[in-house]
Amino acid sequence: MFDKIFPPKQVVLPNGKTVSEKRSRTPLIFVTVLIAVYLSIRFTNFEFSLLAKRGHEFFAIINEMIPPKWEYLPHLWQPLLDTIMMSILGSVLGSLVAVPIAYLAASNIVKNKVIVMVARIFLSILRTMPTLVSALIATFIFGLGTLAGTIAIFLFTLAYVGKLLYEQIENASMGAFEAMESIGITRIQAFRYAIFPQVLPNYLSTSLFCFEGNVRYAAILGYVGAGGIGLLLDEGLGWRDYASVGMILLMLAITVFLIETVSEYFRKKLI
């Protein structure tokens, strides 16, 4: 395409040989990016002067967060626990349901192209839905509370683990699977004994990794009423009670750090 609009230049060497030099794409990319930046500035009403004038406000807010309000800590335990539990339940259920869906989406196991396609499109669409949007929808269906948050995390985990798992299944070696099929074992059983052990460590590691991320996501789901610590964050910021917000963020950082450290330890052991 590009080479048709800007045909390659013929370079003639002193000894008479010619070589065709493709036109550099750098100028085109550079100009495109510049135009895109200009348009984006127009679209987003980007104003540097406003930032210069009011930017200090941001640091003023951070300043108010330090030191955090320690008396607020007792109020935090329950929502924090809710957040963690939402993540755990959503992640575990999502990872479990991901197995049959990944099975259906693996083209080397399921030969029916329609089923594979449907399973993959289902996973892609689920994965594209931002967690907060699915949580929002879930609050309409399941009411406000932790259940909606759990559902949202469940759906995201299902999509994320499902995609990575079917890719791993497709990369697994098929020898044992075919051997088992040839001696008359059903496909599902052959999958259970030949493919699943190969992908199991990776599957568990992916699920743990997804769980780590889910704790962060779960923390904001309360904003749309889906339970957990997000509700408090919203309240604190709404009432400009920044010292409490600082406390919440500190606890959140500690929790995320602890969970990541533990999970990372197990993930390293697995692979």
Binding site: V11, L13, P14, N15, K17, V19, E21
Partner: peptide, 17 residues
């Protein structure tokens, strides 16, 4: 550029330039 291409020609990989 021409000198560089000539050097590549001397080692026989002009077409990979």
């Amino acid at each position: 550029k021409l000198q560089a291409l000539t050097a590549l020609d001397q080692v026989g990989i002009l077409e990979k330039a």
